[in-house]
């Protein structure tokens, strides 16, 4: 596994800031009515997407979830085109025809956010099957929420990945709630990673607010997958800053106790402090990354707002390959 070098720490901190700023801005803009549809924000979970994707190249694949902006940014998708997509503009990553829930960029190995909870599992093992069949050392990472862990696709896909020793890592973002229902209520096992033993693969539960914990666990599992030793499950305990979707009153969230403590943690601040203490990030550099990120997101918003809406004839385009 590659060490957390200065260069890597700076990359991670920039991506974490991009995700946070992107989502905070989308939250604001959504409330004004400029963004249509359903939006599910990733803010609060930045350590996971960045800690995992830091180990990936453009040749590696990821599948994402309905809460997919963070994965997109961490996998290297263009911020301007992402924002334009969420606005439903012609210049969007998907020409405005996918939106927040289907944002994707196959050229970057990003196989799509997914409006179907649990929809990513079989697609990820298919990409991993391709990697294995073509004898590459590329991997696939399947991000999934705690809610998705209770879909049938979880079982079928992880079992198949195990029997075929596919190069895939299943990264669970356990943010404590599947929509408005607590994970503790919906899952028979305390930890989703505990289920790994049933499939004969490694499973590990880590602190999803701690970048270094995610980074290390992901590095180990991805190395293992690259070496052809098979899949793993990593469960990252985290919490989302916003609701399930924008407009969610979040009546189910606790106002005190352990859950509140988890909610109040800020993975960006924690990583900044850690990286500075380990001298892999200077305070000056951290400040400039934060300023750059704000500027980049402002640029993305301007780009999206100034972009044209899709042409009417595009309604009929791209249903089939001609």
């Amino acid at each position: 596994m590659d060490k957390l070098t200065k260069e890597r720490a700076e990359w991670i901190y920039k991506k974490m800031n991009d995700i946070r700023n992107f989502e905070d801005e989308v939250h604001q803009i959504f409330s004004t009515g400029s963004i249509p549809g359903f939006v599910h924000l990733y803010a609060g979970e930045e350590a996971i997407a960045t800690g995992v994707c830091a180990h990936l190249t453009d040749n590696d694949y990821i599948t994402s979830t309905h809460r997919g902006h963070g994965h997109c940014i961490a996998k290297g998708c263009d911020l301007d085109k992402m924002m334009a997509e969420i606005y439903g503009k012609e210049t969007g990553l998907c020409k405005g025809k996918g939106g927040s829930m289907h944002i994707a960029d196959i050229d970057k190995g990003m196989l799509g956010a997914n409006g179907m909870v649990g929809g990513g599992f079989p697609i990820a093992i298919g990409a991993a099957l391709r990697n294995k069949y073509l004898k590459t050392d590329d991997v696939a990472v399947c991000f999934f929420g705690d809610g998705a862990a209770n879909e049938g696709t979880f079982h079928e896909s992880i079992n198949m990945a195990s029997i075929w020793k596919l190069p895939v890592v299943f990264v669970n973002e356990n943010n404590s709630f599947g929509e408005a229902t607590p994970q503790k209520y919906a899952s028979g096992s305390e930890h989703i990673a505990d289920r790994a033993s049933a499939y004969g693969i490694p499973g590990e539960t880590v602190d999803g607010k701690d970048l270094t914990a995610v980074y290390e666990a992901a590095g180990k599992a991805i190395d293992r997958a690259r070496k052809g030793e098979g899949p793993s499950i990593i469960e990252c305990i985290t919490y989302r800053n916003y609701g399930h979707f924008e407009g969610d009153e979040q009546k189910y969230k606790a106002k005190e106790g352990g859950e509140k403590k988890l909610a109040d943690r800020d993975c960006l601040k924690e990583f900044r402090k850690y990286a500075i203490s380990k001298k892999i990030l200077s305070a000056k550099k951290a400040d400039s990354i934060e300023a750059d990120s704000v500027e980049d997101i402002e640029h993305a918003i301007k780009f999206a707002e100034e972009s044209p809406i899709p042409k009417p004839e595009s309604l009929y385009e791209d249903v089939f390959v001609d």
């Binding site: 196989l111 599992f121 079989p122 697609i123 099957l129 391709r130 079992n159 198949m160």
Partner: peptide, 20 residues
């Protein structure tokens, strides 16, 4: 495949999207 229709049908989608 195991008797897992959604698993291998979805895996086929993933494999097709990535070049097979």
């Amino acid at each position: 495949t195991p008797i897992s229709e959604m698993g291998y049908m979805g895996a086929s989608v993933g494999a097709a999207a990535t070049g097979l």
